[in-house]
Design a protein around this nucleic acid. Structure first.
Lengths: 230, 230
DNA sequence: CAGTGGTCTAGACCACGTG
DNA sequence: ACGTGGTCTAGACCACTGG
C-alpha cells in the first residue's frame, strides 16, 4: 500500500470487513480516526466510505457513526444492454424487422398504467430484432405521439425505435421490470418454438419529468441470460 | 436554485442534457468553466460530473473533456432482495423449508464452472421459501465445505442458508445471472403448476477472493417480477 | 449538547492522452 | 506540450441526531 488514495482506502476497509475484523452490526471508527490511522485527510476517508455505503456494505448516520450492515445487501449495478450491441458483440448482423406498425387507441391496461386519456392515440410498434436471420428478441412498444410525433416517419427498419428514441427524445426517469413469461402464439412463431415456452422478459417505461414517452415489452429468445456482477 | 451543492449542480447539468441543450455526442464545458458559471468551486462540479458519469449519462476523458454519451446507457442499479424481506413486506410469514440436505460430490457442471476437484464433496441444500403456506421460491444451493464447514450444523429451518452465509462467511465478489426457465417436475410440484411453466430464475455465485463459497439457483413462483428504476 | 458524517472551498499536483 | 479530469489537503461550517 504505497499509494494512498480513496480507492486503496476503500479496499482496505472492505477487506477489514470481509476478514471479519469488523463484524456485521458493529460500529467502525470515525472518519477522523481512520484518517489518522491511514495518514490521510478526512476528505479522502469520507470519499472511500461514501463509496462503500453506495455499495451497500455499510450504513452511515450523522452522530451515530458508521455501521457494518447486518445484511450487506449490495447493490447490483449493470447496464441493460442495447439489443443491437448484444447481437453485434457475437459477430452477427443486426437488423430490426417491423412486424406491425399502427396508430391506435391504446388498450386499457396501458392507459391505466400511464394515466392517459382513454381516447388518446398512441404509436404502436412490434419489432423482431434479428441476429443474422434468426429472431433474437421481440419487442412490443407504445409511444406517446405528443412526446415524439416524428417517430411516425422514422426509418425504423434501419434504426431500432429504442435507439431512435434515445437520440431524439431524452428521458429523465423510468422503470424496468424483469420477469419470465410464456411465449404467445406470435412469439412462438417468431422464435420457432412451442407456445408457452419460458421467455426472459423486460418491461420498460420511460418519462421526461411527468410526460410519458414510451413503454415496451421485450421478450428474448429461449436461453437468454442477463449477467451482472456483485 | 438557492442552495449550491453537488446535488443541485448534478441536477442542473442533467436537465441541460435532457432538454437537448447539450446534444448526445457533444462536448460540454470544462469543469473550471462550469464552476465559474455556477459560482462554486471546481471540486463541487467535479463531484457532480463524476456522479453523472456513474449514471452513464456522460463520458469523461482527461484532456479530451466531458462528452454527452451517444447512447446514454444508464446503469441500472438495484438491490437483489432477500427472499425473507420480500415475503415479510407483503405481510406474510416467512419460513424456509428444507427439501433436501446432503453432502456429496458435486455434479460435473458445478465442478467445471468453479474449477473444483471432481472428487471434492460439497454441501447440497434444496430449500422451499414459504410465504405463509405457499411456496414462494425454490432454491438449489451448493456450498464449499472448506469455506464454511459450520453450515452443516446451522439451523437452516430457522434462518435461510443465504442469510446464514452472509453473516458468517463474507464474500468479496460474485456474479448473478437472470434468466427464464421451465419448471422441472420438482418445481411444478412445489408451486402446484404444470411442468414447463415459465419461472423467473436467478443464479448467483460468490467468492472470497479466489475461494469459492457458494453457488445457487433460485426459481420464483410464476408471476414474480423484479423491479428497478432508471 | 456534542460528536458524527455531509459538504464546500481554494489551492495544489499529477496522470493521461489528444492534437 | 498542454489542457483536461482525478485526486489530495487543510480547514471550515453545517445538519442531523443520540444521549
Amino acid at each position: 500500500m504505497n499509494v494512498i488514495n480513496h480507492h486503496s482506502i476503500r479496499k482496505a476497509i472492505r477487506q477489514r470487513i470481509e476478514s471479519g475484523e469488523w463484524q456485521p452490526g458493529t460500529i467502525i471508527p470515525a472518519e477522523a480516526d481512520l484518517a489518522a490511522e491511514y495518514g490521510c485527510s478526512r476528505t479522502t476517508v469520507n470519499r472511500a466510505m461514501q463509496n462503500l455505503a453506495d455499495d451497500g456494505l455499510i450504513e452511515r448516520k450523522r452522530r451515530a457513526g458508521t455501521r457494518v450492515k447486518e445484511i450487506p445487501t449490495r447493490q447490483t449495478t449493470f447496464k441493460i444492454p442495447i439489443v443491437r450491441h448484444e447481437i453485434e458483440a457475437t459477430g452477427a448482423n443486426y437488423r430490426p424487422h417491423i412486424l406491425l406498425k399502427e396508430t391506435k387507441r391504446a388498450p386499457d391496461h396501458i392507459t391505466a398504467k400511464l394515466h392517459l386519456d382513454q381516447g388518446e392515440k398512441l404509436f404502436h410498434l412490434v419489432t423482431a430484432h434479428l441476429s443474422d436471420r434468426r429472431v433474437y428478441a421481440v419487442e412490443d412498444r407504445w409511444v406517446n405521439l405528443a412526446a415524439a410525433p416524428e417517430i411516425i416517419s422514422a426509418p425504423l427498419d434501419e434504426i431500432s425505435a429504442n435507439e431512435w428514441l434515445i437520440r431524439k427524445v431524452p428521458y429523465s426517469n423510468g422503470d424496468v421490470v424483469f420477469s419470465a413469461s410464456a411465449a404467445s402464439k406470435r412469439e412462438a412463431e417468431a422464435f420457432e418454438i412451442d407456445i408457452g415456452a419460458a421467455l426472459f422478459t423486460v418491461d420498460r417505461t420511460t418519462w421526461l419529468d411527468d410526460i410519458f414517452i414510451t413503454t415496451m415489452t421485450l421478450r428474448y429468445r429461449p436461453g437468454y441470460q442477463l449477467n451482472a456482477r456483485l
